[in-house]
Nucleic acid binder design. Structure first.
Length: 259
DNA sequence: TTCCAGGCGTATC
DNA sequence: GATACGCATGGA
């Protein structure tokens, strides 16, 4: 069935291409096809929201959650206007919205992302899903935990192969419990994620922000470090407080697309 | 050929 | 705690 998912405003192009997700493809004419968790859908850009083109009724709630339809961005962006740099970044892509992604998929994706570029990240994740996943979804932790480094290196994961396997093993063994992390405050949740080999502060913050919707997480990658040095040498402005992660994403998308 | 990419582990101080 | 270096891979 088709379903109109109403939001205040969401720009699918900047939302899917701002580096938070890796599994959406632009089909042209305002159409995008993507996979999240074990569900796939095609969406069409609308003025206020989007139309889900091939969705089952039972999955509508899932996509409403995924697209965070109840987040009040007009209020958040209004607060951000107190800072001139952030005001420009929001003006550059006013319809950019954070997604609420599946934690394990986000964890594996951002382990792969380290010291890598977005195009390659997408390719590696897509290969991993088609080779080891069911129906094109990200492989289950149990599947990845059974692999050896040599099984993954053909995908191009490079030295990150052992990190991926370590993450999967710690989840299968129960040493890391994503359901528990979801309930924990930011600092404790981050400490748990840091137990995984290959997960440092930046990857942990990405997982918390994109996978657990911890909006105070502020991932510091090479691009954002340049932003901090150039625009915020004395720290982040007050107007970001509580929504540092959303601000980060506007800034990241802005700085990457400046000529 | 060298440099870089949504960094991190390890060694060393 | 800070800093230096190596690391797989492929595109520029």
């Amino acid at each position: 069935m088709e379903y109109f998912l109403e939001t205040d405003f969401i720009d699918l192009d900047s939302t899917f291409n701002c580096g938070q997700c890796f599994r959406w493809e632009n089909g042209g004419d305002g159409l995008y096809s993507g996979t999240a968790g074990n569900k796939s859908v095609t969406v069409r850009q609308e003025k206020k929201g989007m139309t889900l083109l091939n969705v089952e009724k039972a999955d509508i709630a899932f996509w409403e959650e995924y697209f965070c339809v109840d987040e009040d961005y007009s209020a958040i962006i209004e607060k951000f206007r107190a800072d001139s740099t952030l005001r420009e970044a929001c003006g550059f892509a006013p319809g950019l919205r954070l997604l609420r992604q599946e934690p394990f998929e986000t964890l594996i994706s951002f382990i792969i992302s380290q010291n890598n570029n977005i195009k390659r990240i997408k390719g590696i994740i897509n290969k991993m899903c088609s080779v080891f996943g069911e129906n094109g979804a990200i492989p289950a932790p149990e599947t990845l935990a059974r692999l050896e480094v040599g099984d993954l290196t053909p995908l191009g994961t490079g030295y990150r192969a052992r990190y991926i396997i370590d993450a999967a093993k710690k989840i299968v063994s129960g040493e890391i419990m994503l359901d528990e992390i979801a309930k924990m405050p930011y600092n404790g949740a981050k400490a748990e994620l840091l137990k995984i080999i290959g997960v440092g502060g930046k990857v942990a913050d990405c997982v918390l922000l994109f996978g657990f919707h911890e909006l105070q997480a502020f991932p510091k990658d090479v691009w954002i470090k340049r932003v901090l040095a150039q625009y915020y040498p004395d720290g982040l402005p007050m107007c970001m407080q509580g929504y540092e992660g959303i601000a980060q994403q506007f800034l990241f998308h802005y700085i990457r697309n400046l000529k």
